[in-house]
């Protein structure tokens, strides 16, 4: 089936398509969003309301397809049924960016629905490189991989996260989705300087940014996507703007989701930086 589509990116700031906003977006209002991001897996089976709204939006906005279940860092075989669904979905939607996370999410028949980090070692670098090549060849697309919020590091790691990511981009032709909130949360919880992270990243490979609000609990930061942007995040974003401008940037809000208008106001704030 042919879906009407636009490839015109009216501005670099995008918003996630989330169910509390369906009723509003069904009215096809003019919005401040330049594009929308969808969670790919949520659309594989549905032919109901979520899919209809996505197809309606696709006529007016470019779409980014973001995944949460690729489990690229798994040591089990790929879930090929999943990959076939993903490829079909990409072909139908024709997204301008496709992405997932640098993590594993579980075992076959036991998806934790969590994004788990791997040790930053040469062995894992080789393993991930092979898997990325394999999946990109199958999908016929270059994926952007997102850095995680990780609540532990491995003793076995022989390199930093940022060096691992930089090395990965040398060994493969994958792109990066840089989540600034994750960098900030990790830098606080694991006590490193976020500048070290930014300085190591090959920005020519960064095709998308994520910004979100975190939550503090018992002296730790948690990547909850549940608050407005903190000033520290805005500062980090300004640093990125000095390195590279015009990177498509998603403003994420996934818990206690507010009205669409509040999200648009956050975008307008970012536009004025």
């Amino acid at each position: 089936m042919k879906i009407p589509k636009t490839s015109k990116l009216t501005n670099i700031f995008g918003l996630g398509l989330r169910s509390p906003h369906y009723s509003y977006l069904e009215l096809q209002p003019a919005t401040s969003a330049g594009w929308f991001e969808v969670i790919s897996e949520n659309y594989f089976q549905t032919r109901g309301r979520p899919r209809q709204i996505l197809e309606t939006l696709r006529a007016d906005y470019p779409i980014s397809c973001h995944g949460v279940s690729l489990s690229i860092a798994s040591y089990e075989d790929f879930d090929w049924a999943y990959l076939h669904d993903l490829k079909k979905f990409y072909n139908e939607i024709e997204p301008f960016i496709v992405s997932d996370h640098l993590c594993f999410t579980g075992l076959q028949n036991n998806n934790t629905h969590n994004l788990l980090p791997v040790a930053y070692t040469q062995e894992n670098l080789n393993h991930l490189s092979e898997r990325i090549d394999k999946v990109q060849n199958f999908l016929g697309r270059t994926l952007a991989f997102e850095n995680l919020s990780a609540y532990f590091n491995y003793q076995a790691s022989t390199m930093t996260e940022w060096d691992f990511i930089a090395e990965l981009t040398k060994k493969t032709d994958c792109n990066l989705l840089l989540d600034l909130n994750n960098i900030f949360v990790n830098s606080y919880n694991h006590q490193f300087d976020s500048d070290d992270f930014l300085n190591a990243i090959p920005f020519e490979r960064v095709k998308e940014l994520h910004l979100a609000g975190f939550r503090e609990r018992d002296g730790f930061y948690f990547d909850t996507h549940s608050n407005p942007l903190y000033p520290e995040l805005v500062e980090l974003y300004k640093k990125v703007l000095k390195i590279k401008k015009n990177i498509p940037t998603l403003y994420e809000w996934d818990e206690d989701i507010p009205s669409f208008e509040i999200l648009e106001n956050q975008i307008k704030t970012l536009m004025n930086l």
Binding site: Y151, F152, N153, Y154, Q155, A156, S157, Y188, N189, H190, Q191, G219, F220
Partner: peptide, 11 residues
């Protein structure tokens, strides 16, 4: 025991 110490969160 595989987690590195030094984070704000205990293992």
């Amino acid at each position: 025991s595989q987690f590195r110490l030094g984070s704000k969160l205990s293992p």
